[in-house]
Amino acid sequence: MNVFVFKSELWTAQYTGIKVNTLAAFTRVLKEIDDDTIYYHLYRNLFEYHFLPTDYGNSFAYWMAENGFPVLAEKFSAIDLIECVCISDLREAMLNILHSGIDGFERICKPFYFIRAVRKVVDTGVRAKDIEEFKEGLNKVGVHSLFHHLVTSRLVHGEPTNDFSRWLRSIGEEEKADRIEKIDLMAYSLYEVRDRILRILES
């Protein structure tokens, strides 16, 4: 029997000791910095602020907007985090935007502090053997469990699907798996995502 194990992830933050105050320095650091730092800055909004109507999608974009680069901020904000399945693709996407002819590369800005995500995955102890138990499980776990299975899992497996859909397919629920895969995680809060998944499972 294929049992679904609900996991979740917890984050704290560690300062890398690197701060920059020009776009040029930012670009140089972005080329080299570790994946956990990019992960922190790009996904933190989705992880922490998903329930609030914030202006920009990630902290890179916020810094750019605050320092007079609104177009860059918009472009960085529009990076679809769910389409990418590895950090190196995201890094490349960001560098491409930065290399697309921006003025003011050397202008002094407010500092940007690079922070690394310190993450820990925990087993929540919640299990599901069938759809009914899966629905119960979804209601028992915190929203960071959804983040783990819908967002992080794509990066972990390097596949354009998520743990929920993968499991549903394994028990023959192809259509439900497809519909969950199509939910736009960038457009809804994780609480709304949970409601949508529950509706799909009940349909």
């Binding site: 979740s8 917890l10 925990v122 929540t124 028992k140 776990v141 915190g142 929203v143």
Partner: peptide, 15 residues
């Protein structure tokens, strides 16, 4: 705070 989040804390503490 939601029970799921409290549960995650307990699991982390167990380790």
């Amino acid at each position: 705070i939601d029970v799921g989040t409290l549960n995650e804390l307990s699991k982390l503490a167990e380790e």
